[in-house]
């Protein structure tokens, strides 16, 4: 090791300062456990929003419909898997392949809705696959996903921004996924193509926006002066 340079002296001073200021820390819980904590908070907020807005009148009928349950299960699984992946990506040494964790539930979600489009078309013809404007979906998903997104961001900031864009993209997917999950308990829109375009589309747009803001939302902390 080269010695005697001023810069190495600065490093030695930094080491001394860090060692002096080192308070005991508790090892962070496993990402899976942290994701479950987050999911409980996110679902509680989603439930509160459903209660505040008022559940859809045909909810009892819907929750006994296998297709609705499958779509909702896949949306929820996508959100939770994305949260696990996002939290894991902030742990140094975690395999980067974890970013693909939500791919399977997301494929089931989109696949189920795509099959639903075909079924709607077979049953109702062109009327079953008509797209009409429904921008409220975006607003509701963003609104319901806002608090979960904030909580998840705070949790992510305790980790390391190793892959900030991927991390916030997954966090956006997680929060918007939960937002969409809650939305369908009060929003009476079940036409598969409409759900695919306006709801899954909104989730995708929000996740992409979050991903683009990755470096801003998860910066490396500045060096103290």
């Amino acid at each position: 090791m080269a010695k005697g340079t001023d810069t190495e002296g600065d490093t030695a001073a930094l080491i001394a300062r860090l060692a002096r200021d080192a308070a005991p820390v508790r090892a962070m819980a496993h990402p899976l456990r942290r994701a479950m904590t987050w999911a409980v908070i996110a679902l509680a907020f989603g439930a509160a929003m459903v209660w505040a807005i008022g559940p859809r009148p045909d909810l009892a009928e819907r929750v006994s419909d296998a297709r609705f349950l499958l779509e909702q299960g896949a949306a929820l699984a996508t959100g939770v898997a994305a949260a696990i992946a996002a939290l894991a990506l902030t742990i140094p040494g975690a395999p980067m392949l974890l970013r693909l964790l939500p791919v399977i539930p997301a494929a089931v979600w989109v696949g189920t809705l795509s099959l639903g489009c075909l079924r709607d078309w077979a049953q109702m013809g062109a009327a079953g696959v008509r797209i009409t404007p429904d921008p409220a979906c975006f607003v509701y998903i963003a609104l319901i996903g806002s608090l979960p997104a904030l909580v998840l961001l705070m949790m992510l900031r305790r980790g390391v921004p190793l892959a900030p864009r991927w991390t916030t993209l997954l966090a956006g997917l997680a929060a918007a996924g939960i937002g969409n999950f809650a939305l369908r308990f009060f929003h009476t829109q079940d036409a598969a193509l409409m759900v695919l375009v306006w709801q899954v589309g909104s989730v995708a747009v929000l996740a992409l926006l979050a991903g683009l803001a990755g470096r801003i939302l998860l910066p490396w902390r500045a060096r103290p002066v």
């Binding site: 600065d10 860090l18 820390v25 508790r26 962070m28 140094p92 902390r221």
Partner: peptide
């Protein structure tokens, strides 16, 4: 090197 040390310091709770 100093950035790495600071990151270590800030992230030390993430080490299992």
């Amino acid at each position: 090197v100093q950035d790495i040390l600071l990151s270590l310091h800030q992230a030390r709770s993430t080490w299992d």
